[in-house]
Design a protein around this nucleic acid. Structure first.
Lengths: 206, 206
DNA sequence: CCTACCGATCGGTAGG
DNA sequence: CCTACCGATCGGTAGG
């Protein structure tokens, strides 16, 4: 029997599947942020990408699986942006400012996957949670090392757990109030946030 | 007809109704925080206070009405605590520290109504929202005036809208990570949070 | 990826 | 405040 040695068809369909999956993740992320995980139905998500209600289950085995995938997608985008933001940047303050800017862009720009992580943690099942935490830890460890540098440089009084969580709180809360058509740009807010937390360098360094 | 001039029975029943209503608000608040508004069913709430599933609708006309009532209840408790915390306290820094402590106690202690306001804003209908905002504005205006005093005293670089929202973010985010059995008490966290935001007074004031 | 469907559950109501 | 119930909707599946 003539079996083709190259399989262009399966290759194409794999690509298509990847795209459809990515479409679903993007639509789900946006809807989860807008309406919340529980208030979003599979039918909402299917509609958003032009599918029928049963079809998302061809790509994800459950709604919970979609939630986990959305969060991991958001974290991976954040990790990539984080690396790009600090590569080659020297000095504790500059690295800190770069991290803040990168973080706010990730959570406030059109990527809506990361905010799902912030506001639907409760909806994540224990099994999914472990997977997500592994990626989340990588993202946070970069923050920890930069905060440590900051403290060493005398630009931050304390870099303990409580301080760290207070910082993240200020940043992550922006999702609740930032509006793209508002008075301030994302970079404005990032600069003001960095200013707020940095101890003034002692006057007259010379 | 012999109409009793005093109506002890209706008085008692009014009191009872008030208690049952308060019970429902407390149970709903706890469940909304634990599972989220959408994931909490009327049956969950009824169970929690020992009612049948149809009975909460004797006290509230809809689930949305319960949400609004929970939020307003939380705000009123916060307003009362806020007043008590700053009355007679003089000096910008002392007033600020008192406000922070009071706020963290309200959102982290057993009162669970205020956090509903923070995390279920999205679930609130437009009509309910207007009512809640009116009470919320009273609570925030006290913060604004204290932050203004702080800036005047040189203890805060800026008291604009962005800074204010960053501050609230750091405080409100504690709901996500604070654990009563953790390493730090609420007052520890309040003190550390106040330290984080206050500019160091210029050394050697004399 | 669609069609057709199922069992479960939900907010809410009538009538007492 | 309970009993009994309804219409709507939801996550998910079988079979193609």
């Amino acid at each position: 029997m003539a079996v083709a040695k190259t399989k262009p068809k399966s290759r194409v369909s794999a690509t298509d599947e990847g795209n459809r999956r990515a479409d679903l993740i993007r639509a789900a992320g946006r809807l989860f942020v807008e309406k919340g995980f529980d208030a979003t139905t599979i039918r909402d998500i299917a509609d958003a990408v032009g599918m029928r209600s049963g079809s998302p289950f061809y790509h994800f085995k459950s709604k919970q699986d979609m939630l986990k995938s959305v969060m991991i997608e958001g974290l991976q985008a954040a990790l990539t942006a984080q690396q790009a933001a600090i590569v080659g940047v020297r000095g504790a303050e500059a690295r800190f400012r770069a991290l803040v800017k990168s973080h706010l862009r990730i959570i406030l720009e059109d990527h809506t996957e990361f905010p799902v992580l912030l506001y639907e943690w409760r909806a994540l099942s224990d099994e999914s949670r472990a997977e997500v935490i592994a990626v989340k830890d990588r993202y946070e460890s970069v923050w920890q090392s930069v905060l440590k540098e900051l403290k060493k440089a005398g630009l931050l009084k304390d870099d303990g757990r409580v301080t760290r969580l207070l910082l993240f709180g200020a940043f992550n809360w922006t999702v609740q109030w930032y509006r793209p058509d508002g008075e301030f740009t994302i970079d404005d807010i990032a600069a003001r946030a960095a200013d707020l937390f940095l101890c003034p360098r002692t006057e007259g360094r010379h």
